[in-house]
């Protein structure tokens, strides 16, 4: 604080016009400056563009069976080769990116939604409610994630929607824990007390004052969680619990290629690379986002 804090004087001093827009520009600048987030962000962006443009740029119909040209190695006609039923792998990977992104976003959304609600209730009200919710979360955490998802899918039946639900459910604990922690720290701020003294209801305090102030850790967690979710969905599909053939899902494609690993390794290789890259992209981007949003990183 300046010792010249005479209000009349400081009021005259030019104050930089930094509104929320400027904040967003700062964030974008920080993300571009950070090499990790730049690379990660670019990968994610390319995937999104490819997914959107898939119907336009894919050279073949991803479902078209062409037994004459089956098990072909990559060539000018089929840049990633064909699988055991002669379907073009490149086209299938393009359509698969639509699926993977959608699945990732939906399951993260499910996890975030329930995680935020449980975390805020737990952190804000505390006491017995907190204990009950957190023990429930601990139980969820105690299960290995994939095993829990497997259990849920086998109970609900194998389908992509059930896989999304299952993966969403096992994202709940991480969100709930992060949200609870942030809520606890924001709840103690004096501006929350001030608004309580003004007679605000709990709902207003939670939605208007707490939620906007804990968004950054949620966004970071969401980005990182996207990578895990996409990987888990691919894993479940690989095990036959998710997307059913002939859906062009990367995990399922990987599983199809398993039988031809020695004769036609490209069938498994390309979906594998696709999965690895998108997971890498989201992880790098999430890490960069966390650094950019961390106030301690600001100079």
């Amino acid at each position: 604080m300046s010792t010249f804090a005479n209000p009349q004087e400081t009021a005259k001093a030019p104050v930089p016009v930094s509104k929320r827009k400027a904040k967003g520009a700062d964030l974008a600048k920080a993300l571009i400056k950070n090499k990790m987030s730049l690379v990660g962000g670019s990968i994610v962006l390319i995937y999104i563009i490819l997914a959107v443009l898939a119907p336009l740029i894919s050279p073949y119909d991803p479902f078209e069976i062409d037994l004459v040209n089956k098990l072909q190695s990559p060539s000018a006609d089929h840049i990633m080769g064909t699988d055991d039923k002669g379907r073009d792998i490149f086209s299938r990977i393009l359509y698969g990116s639509q699926l993977s992104l959608a699945v990732g976003f939906v399951s993260v959304f499910i996890g975030a939604l329930f995680g935020i609600v449980l975390g805020i209730i737990s952190g804000y009200y505390g006491g017995l409610v907190d204990t009950i919710i957190m023990r429930f979360i601990d139980v969820l955490l105690a299960f290995p994630g994939l095993l829990l998802a497997l259990a849920i899918v086998s109970a609900l039946g194998p389908s992509l929607i059930n896989v999304m639900i299952a993966v969403g459910v096992f994202s709940i604990p991480t969100f709930a824990r992060i949200v609870r922690g942030s809520t606890l720290s924001v709840k103690k701020m004096e501006y929350i007390d001030a608004i309580r003294v003004l007679g605000a209801s709990d709902l207003k305090i939670i939605f208007v004052h707490i939620l906007p102030n804990i968004l950054s850790p949620i966004i970071v967690q969401g980005t990182l969680r996207l990578a895990t979710s996409i990987l888990s969905v691919a894993g479940l599909s690989f095990l036959g619990m998710g997307a059913q053939p002939p859906t062009p899902e990367w995990g399922a494609m990987l599983s199809d290629g398993r039988d031809f690993l020695f004769t036609a390794p490209h069938i498994a290789l390309f979906p594998g690379i696709a999965i690895a890259l998108i997971v890498l992209g989201f992880n790098l981007f999430g890490d960069g986002l966390r650094d950019a949003l961390d106030p301690r990183m600001k100079n």
């Binding site: 007390d193 001030a194 003004l198 004052h209 906007p212």
Partner: peptide
Amino acid sequence: QVIFQDPFASLNPR
């Protein structure tokens, strides 16, 4: 009403 001690924590930054 109340006026708090910490001028940095008593206003919602957003």
